[in-house]
Design a protein around this nucleic acid. Structure first.
Length: 423
RNA sequence: GUGGGUGUAGCUCAGUUGGUUAGAGCGUCGGACUGUGGCUCCGAAGGUCGCGGGUUCGAGCCCCGUUACCCACCCCA
């Protein structure tokens, strides 16, 4: 059998798994302070949830979905992102209170069928938040703040990050702007790549994303949405910026920031870093999606959120030289002198653990020397030596691995004494 | 889907113009006088040299195919 994990997937070995849990803990703590509650949705959904929400013409839907039919011929798809599922769930269970809003966060694996490379996997982890029901620009600023604060909290230096923001307009002003850009593309067709020419018909705004040097040059001359937003969208955008200024969060306006999902309206944003991600640069991003709930048949319900990538965040942390704290595997190691005391050693280890102390012992009857090496490797601060001599006196020897000092401790109340020594 | 690079012990890599028993460092295990660690020293285990063909007296080294991984394009977390 093939013992390799499937292409584009990776085992998270203990070192990485620890980092994973660290990111998760940090997020949970931070998100809770902003009033977000956890939600877990299925890893797969009816395919329609994504085709309708994310958009047929997007790369994600047109060529990256893991779609399959189950035994009853239902078309299901492994989720390529988190927002669509959360919004579907919020609609299904009426999570958005009338006249109010709900704040949710999620974490877990996402799936996209792509050629893997640095910072891009077929199964990758995201953690994200969604705020459903609130249309006010202060919420936009708050969501952006949570994203920035998270990266700060895990240890990415502020100066390594770049926050880009833009407005994608709404149903009032976007159609006209779309047409303006489509026309612009057709007018400059011969100077643009094949893909961009196709975009004039499918999704003109994405032409701003093209990295082809010729296209970049031409698109630099294209009319900017910033200048054609309707009054409401322009006001909203201005307000978001004011709130961000108030929070002291620095951002760069990028009129060409066009995110790859169709559901975005008004505010969109992305956090980028320059080092560690290979040719990728975004570690998190999101935006507002005021029409998404309606696309699923719900009442008009504004919403917005962000998603950030675990793998990419770790790459960025690595590039910044941040070490993720690793607790010792054992605070106390129980060494036994010979097999005659195995039973006692086993009992002591268990008693320590029940007292709340991380304790480890040797199960393989190895030499005392080997046991000390093990104690050292595990990072134990104390080693309890269990030998016939000690037991005869109703005691054990406790060695401080740092100072090498040894004291005899009565077996009676040993766990408590050791806990005191560790304190 | 397209292009480039790389596949030698658990990990990181050497392997000279093809030549006989394939090496190192790290890690693991054991030992350096009797119940004791981090340094040092000694030793051991561990390899279908990605796989399949071919050339050759002889291939880890050359050729062809194949596969896996990596990186890049596209796009995104």
């Amino acid at each position: 059998m093939n013992v390799r994990a499937p292409k584009g997937t990776a085992d998270m070995l203990p070192e990485v798994a620890r980092a994973w849990e660290y990111l998760t803990r940090t997020a949970q703590e931070l998100f809770a302070r902003y009033g977000y509650e956890p939600i877990y949705t299925p890893l797969f959904e009816h395919t329609e949830v994504f085709t309708r929400g994310i958009g047929e013409a997007t790369d994600i839907v047109s060529k990256e979905m893991y779609t399959f039919t189950d035994r009853s011929d239902r078309s299901l798809t492994l989720r390529p992102e988190g927002t669509a599922s959360v919004v579907r769930s919020a609609l299904e269970h009426s999570l958005v209170p009338q006249g109010s809003y709900v704040k949710l966060y999620y974490a877990g694996p996402m799936f996209r069928y792509e050629r893997p490379q640095k910072g891009r996997m077929r199964q990758f982890w995201q953690i994200g938040i969604e705020c459903l029901g609130a249309a006010e620009p202060s919420v936009d600023a708050e969501v952006i703040a949570v994203l920035i604060r998270f990266f700060e909290a895990v240890g990415i230096p502020l100066e390594n990050m770049r926050l880009l923001i833009n407005s994608m307009g709404d149903e009032t002003c976007r159609p006209a702007y779309r047409e303006t850009v489509a026309t612009f593309i057709r007018d400059h067709g011969e100077a643009l790549c094949e893909e961009c020419n196709r975009r004039a018909e499918t999704n003109p705004l994405r032409a701003f994303d093209c990295k082809n040097p010729g296209c970049v040059e031409v698109m630099a001359e294209a009319p900017l949405f910033r200048d054609e937003l309707c009054d409401e969208c322009a006001d909203h955008y201005e307000a978001v910026k004011e709130y961000l200024d108030g929070l002291g969060i620095t951002y760069e306006e990028d009129p060409k920031l066009v995110r790859g999902l169709d559901y975005y309206t008004r505010t969109v944003f992305e956090v980028q870093v320059d080092a560690g991600l290979g040719s990728q640069n975004a570690i998190g991003g999101g935006g507002r999606y005021d029409r998404l709930m309606e696309q699923y048949g719900g009442k008009p319900t504004p919403g917005l959120g962000f998603a950030l990538g675990f793998e990419r965040t770790l790459l960025a942390l690595e590039a910044a030289g941040v070490e993720i704290p690793a607790p010792p595997l054992a605070e106390v190691y129980v060494a036994r002198v010979d097999e005659s005391v195995s039973g006692m050693a086993f009992g002591f280890t268990s008693a320590l653990r029940e007292t709340g102390i991380a304790a480890e012992m040797d199960h393989q009857a190895r030499s005392l020397k080997a046991q000390f090496k093990q104690a050292d490797r595990l990072g134990a601060r104390l080693t309890v030596i269990v030998g016939p001599d000690e037991l005869d006196a109703g005691e054990v020897t406790v060695r401080d691995m740092g100072t090498k000092e040894e004291v005899r401790v009565p077996i009676e109340g040993m766990a408590g004494r050791i806990a005191a020594l560790l304190a």
